[in-house]
Amino acid sequence: MDYFLDLVISGLMVGALYGIIAMGFAMIYKATGVVNFAQGEVLMLVAYIAYTLTTLIDMPFWLLIPATIMIGMIVGLIVEFLFIRPMIGEPVFATVMVTIGLAVFIRSLVVLLWDAFPHEFVTSLSEQVIEISGIRLYPSQIVAFITYLVLMAAFWSFFRYSRIGIAMRAVANKETVALLMGIRIKHVYAVAWALSSIIAGIAGVLFASIYDLDPTISAMGLNAFPAAILGGLDSVLGSGFGGLIIGVVENLTGGYLSTGLKSVSGFVVIILVLMVRPYGLFGEPEIERV
């Protein structure tokens, strides 16, 4: 039983990271209708820039987070402006292809600018294992989970109460009508990319501080993808929640069956779920009212 609980808890911790990344997928998909396959690479880029920053200046952890937010925002806006904005009005598929190209580009760029070796991402968080009623956790894992909860709450209120958040949902619902309201679609796209990069960056920094920083970190994007599909690509909070499920399922599979099946299990889960609910657990089927 203890083993089971251990697996579930550490699964939740990994799942929190998946959830954060999945929210980034959903954010862009919801606003622009594009699946951003460069999500993991944006994460990687932001994490590397943040890493360089920590090697240059001695930075306490509480300062690292706002710094990551700034870096994420700038990266997101630059990527949107250079690669995505020229694609507005082109078929969605073309834009998706651009994100795939972008993924390869950023991966190479990072190896070129930094290197392909693992680096230790040192944060001021203690490395001391904390034991809470028999379950052993690293402080950074707890920080990751708290960040996840904070982000979930933040996005919930963002989409409900802020004007730009509601506008994002409006654009997702009926783009032409959103134009008629005077909503600037380009602004909405830019905000979506910025927010998505910010949360990807946060996930990247958290992940790198738990493990190490090396170019394989970009695979986190693909690992989190099932979470977004599971929760429903058009539901940001649903995707966030999907992360927890995928995290736990992966850990249980790894613990009881074999570690090799670990990353496959997430995809098995989404295939099963999509057979029953093709729009994901929390995605919205179209309201057709004739």
Binding site: R163, I166, A167, R169, A170, A172, N173, K174, V177, A178, M181, G182, I183, E284, I287, R289
Partner: peptide, 18 residues
């Protein structure tokens, strides 16, 4: 052409976006 996934009030708020 309402934003049918949004509430009445959210629709109205969008009308006052500018």
């Amino acid at each position: 052409q309402l934003f049918d996934t949004l509430t009445v009030e959210e629709n109205l708020i969008m009308g006052g976006y500018t």
